[in-house]
Amino acid sequence: MLKQKNNMFDPLFRWTTLGGSLVVLVLVAGILLTLINGALPSLEKFGVGFLFSQEWNPAINEYGALSSVYGTLVSTLIAMLIAVPLSLVIALFLVELAPPGISRVVGGAIELLAAIPSIIYGMWGLFVFAPFLADHVQPKLAAIAPGLPFFTGPPMGIGMLSAGIILALMILPFITSVTRDVFQMVPSVVKESAYGMGSTTWEVTRKVTVPYGIQGVVGACFLGLGRAIGETMAVTFVIGNSHEISASLFSAANSIASTLANEFTEAADDVYLAALIELGLVLFGVTLVLQIIARWWLRRTAKKMGAVR
């Protein structure tokens, strides 16, 4: 009698836990379908032209994603240009140069950068870093390269450049920690044989460690890219929120995420709301594709290197 009662619970347990797992899949599909459905009025009105129009005018109900997409791409590009080389040398320091104790402390500190909430980066960026940039960095950049269109205009601090630099700080820990893991996967026998031939640390890194781990490093960059593209609050604080496209990195711009954060609660009109949701759909689509590529790539690498991941 008792036994039968117990047996009844087992299938129930199994199905309940399965239900929890299915929630994950339902959510992913639900987000995609909800965004597509919510964007319909805008999809119907603007079609593919939405992606290529620079117009963003709630007064006449005309919307285009170009300035937001441009801002997202450029700020992410600046972030990657700064974060990738920096992460590589920091990972090199952690794996090859620092003694284990120091490596652990420094590595922990770098990882702590990832734990700082985005809004704290925003506060620091708006009140401390942007004024610093305007007073000390931007005038120098303008003086060093007077002819370049990137460094023209008044040094306001707030704008594309500060957004890119803060994004770089935010993705640095992600790229560093994956790169560090990849570097550690390189068998020490391979490295030691290079050292045995008389190579210097840099030569071992450039000719053995990096080529061995290059795929993992690329995967790490994809992960960082995915983070940077969807980052919201820090960017919203410092990017300046302007729908104008400007070649100068000093001027205010916007990104998909910052436009959503700024304008979503203000969107009273259906088409306005749909256009914002379509922006969200574009962002979701891009991060989905990046995630899929990154995971596929990292898994392929892990398999190739015979590691369990």
């Binding site: 969807g230 919201t232 995420a257 959503l260 969200g280 991060t287 989905l288 990046l290 899929i292």
Partner: peptide, 17 residues
């Protein structure tokens, strides 16, 4: 795979959803 995708989804998209 789904939970990896969900983890990589920007939090603002979750807000919109």
């Amino acid at each position: 795979f789904g939970s990896n995708l969900l983890m990589g989804t920007p939090s603002i998209i979750i807000g919109v959803f």
